[in-house]
Structure formats: structure tokens, C-alpha cells
Computed example of a mutant assay.
Amino acid sequence: MRLANQQAHYLELEEKDVLRHSLAAGRQAAKLLKDNFGDSATYDVSIKHDRSLVTRVDGESQALIMSYLKGQFPDIPFVAEEQDRQVNAGVKKDGYYFVIDPLDGTASFVIGIPFFCTSIALCKGTQTLAGVLVDPNHNEEFTAVLGGGAFLNGNRMSVTKRRNIEELYLNVNHTKFDQNRFERINANILKKIRRFHKLGSLCLEVAYVASGRLDGTINNDLSMWDIAAAGLILEEAGGRWTLLDGSKPAFPVFEKLDIVATNGIIHYDLLRAL
């Protein structure tokens, strides 16, 4: 099937069918992650150009996801974390493409912390149309389609309503910010909120904001595949995410990203505090 026909076919699909295929791929990959978790001698860990970790399991998970989705949508290309950067950059900016993070939370995976997931998004141009996160350790699936709400294991979810900084529960990963911003986060945010965490998977951290477990998260040094699915899930749950200047990047984007993701109510207060 030619790409034009494939794209036309997508428009005729029920949203539940797109989600069903993404979930099927994500579940298979998540099972692979769980089956390999704990056998660290077989991980074949290496360090990528951006100093992040990668394992044999990252590549196998990605290959599994891509193989499944190619069988369903053979002409839709991929932007994927472990794919060659030139191939990623070659995706047509006005067409459909999948965005894949085969193992979000690799560092947690490597050191034995059971907090990681698979992430799959379908985008068209700058817009994410569908997103799926599968967490194999807690048997949780976070899903959303554009305009259809956000769900955890099939149950609709929504963000918190907290607005006062003294009440907030935030996830904060700020160690790679410059010293001035690092100190502002410490003084203006961390010393004032109720509690902060660093959980170890950006996708799940944003999903936890969407599900009302956290009020927000501040993260730096991210990539598009960290936020493509999770960002849609958050927005469909009533939340908001932006770069630190309050803008949204135009997908597809291949530069590193620093983001704030919140329940929406506290968003601009946190941006100002930064």
C-alpha cells in the first residue's frame, strides 16, 4: 500500500483500532523488558554519544515494536530512540510517523529499579494523535487519543486541582541545569513544596501527573520520544506541558528538551519560579 493510501486509510480507522495495535506492540515489548529484567550479566550495556545508557534489550524491544507496527502500517515511518539519527531526521514533517521509546528508564532498568516502560505515539506533522505507555512492573497501561480523554487501564483519569505551592508533590530532575537555574529550583520550588521525588522514567513521571499522583514534573535533557506519547496523555487528562519559556516544540524535533509538565493550574507559577 502506498503511503498516500495508507494515510487515507488511517483517517477511516476507528481510534480504538489505532490504540489496539499500539497497545499490542507495547505489551509485547513490555513483556520482553520484564522477562529480561534482573539478568544484568546479559544486558551488554554501553554509553551513547549523549552519555545515556543503552542495552541489548533496548534494541530488541525496538525491533519487536517496529516489526509489529510495520505489519499493520507498512508505509508509516518511525522516529525511534535506537534508530540511526539520519533515518529519524528523514521523516516527512507533514506526514504520519510513529515515535518509539522502546525502554524509557534504561538507567533504572540497568541498576535493578523496577520503574521503566515502553512508549509509542502516532503523530501527523506537529501533532500527536495517539499515545500508549505500558509499565510491565505495575501492570499499568496509560493511553490517549487526541480529543478522546486519557485512561489508565481503561479508566478515565484526570490531573489534580492543587494550586498552592506548599501543597505540591513534584517530580524534579534538575542536576543537568546550569548552576543559576539549579539554585533557583532549590530555593524557589524544592524548599517550599510538600515533597519532591525523582522516579527515573520521564514517560511514567508525566503519566503520574496525568493520573493525579503528582502535581507536576520538571525535567531536563530529554528527547522527543520521551514526551510524544506522555505529553498527549497529560493534555488529554487536563494537564499542560511546555518548554521552560512556555512554548511547545514543533514535532518532529531532535534537539534536547527541558520541560515542565503540570496539572495546568500551577504551570505558570512554576515557570516563573524557574
Results as ranks from 00 to 15, higher is better:
1 M>N: 13
6 Q>M: 13
6 Q>E: 15
7 Q>T: 12
7 Q>H: 10
10 Y>F: 14
18 V>L: 14
18 V>C: 09
19 L>Q: 07
20 R>Q: 13
21 H>R: 10
23 L>V: 11
24 A>L: 12
27 R>C: 11
29 A>P: 01
34 K>H: 14
39 D>H: 14
40 S>L: 11
43 Y>T: 01
44 D>E: 15
45 V>K: 09
47 I>K: 13
50 D>R: 06
54 V>K: 14
57 V>Q: 10
58 D>G: 06
63 A>W: 08
69 L>S: 03
76 I>R: 04
76 I>V: 15
77 P>Q: 12
78 F>H: 10
80 A>S: 13
83 Q>N: 13
86 Q>P: 00
95 G>E: 08
98 F>A: 04
100 I>C: 06
102 P>H: 06
102 P>S: 10
104 D>W: 02
108 S>E: 13
109 F>W: 01
112 G>V: 00
113 I>A: 09
117 C>M: 02
118 T>N: 11
120 I>N: 05
120 I>C: 07
124 K>G: 04
124 K>A: 09
125 G>K: 02
125 G>S: 03
127 Q>K: 13
128 T>H: 05
129 L>Y: 10
129 L>M: 14
132 V>W: 02
133 L>A: 05
134 V>G: 00
137 N>S: 15
137 N>I: 12
137 N>P: 00
138 H>Q: 14
143 T>D: 03
144 A>N: 01
145 V>N: 09
147 G>V: 04
148 G>I: 01
148 G>C: 00
148 G>N: 02
149 G>R: 02
150 A>M: 05
151 F>H: 09
152 L>M: 03
154 G>V: 02
157 M>D: 05
161 K>C: 10
164 N>F: 12
166 E>H: 12
168 L>C: 03
173 N>F: 12
174 H>G: 11
176 K>L: 15
177 F>G: 07
180 N>Q: 14
182 F>I: 11
183 E>Y: 12
185 I>E: 01
189 I>V: 15
193 I>F: 02
197 H>M: 11
200 G>C: 03
200 G>E: 00
200 G>H: 01
202 L>W: 00
202 L>Q: 10
204 L>N: 01
205 E>S: 15
206 V>S: 06
208 Y>M: 14
210 A>D: 06
210 A>M: 08
212 G>Y: 09
212 G>T: 10
213 R>L: 14
214 L>N: 04
215 D>R: 04
220 N>C: 15
221 D>A: 11
229 A>N: 08
230 A>L: 06
232 L>M: 08
232 L>E: 03
234 L>S: 00
234 L>D: 03
236 E>I: 01
240 R>F: 08
241 W>A: 01
241 W>R: 06
243 L>V: 04
245 D>H: 01
246 G>Q: 08
253 V>R: 06
255 E>Q: 15
255 E>D: 15
257 L>A: 07
259 I>V: 15
261 A>K: 04
263 N>Q: 08
266 I>P: 02
267 H>P: 04
269 D>E: 14
269 D>S: 14
269 D>C: 09
271 L>N: 06
272 R>H: 12
273 A>N: 07
274 L>T: 05
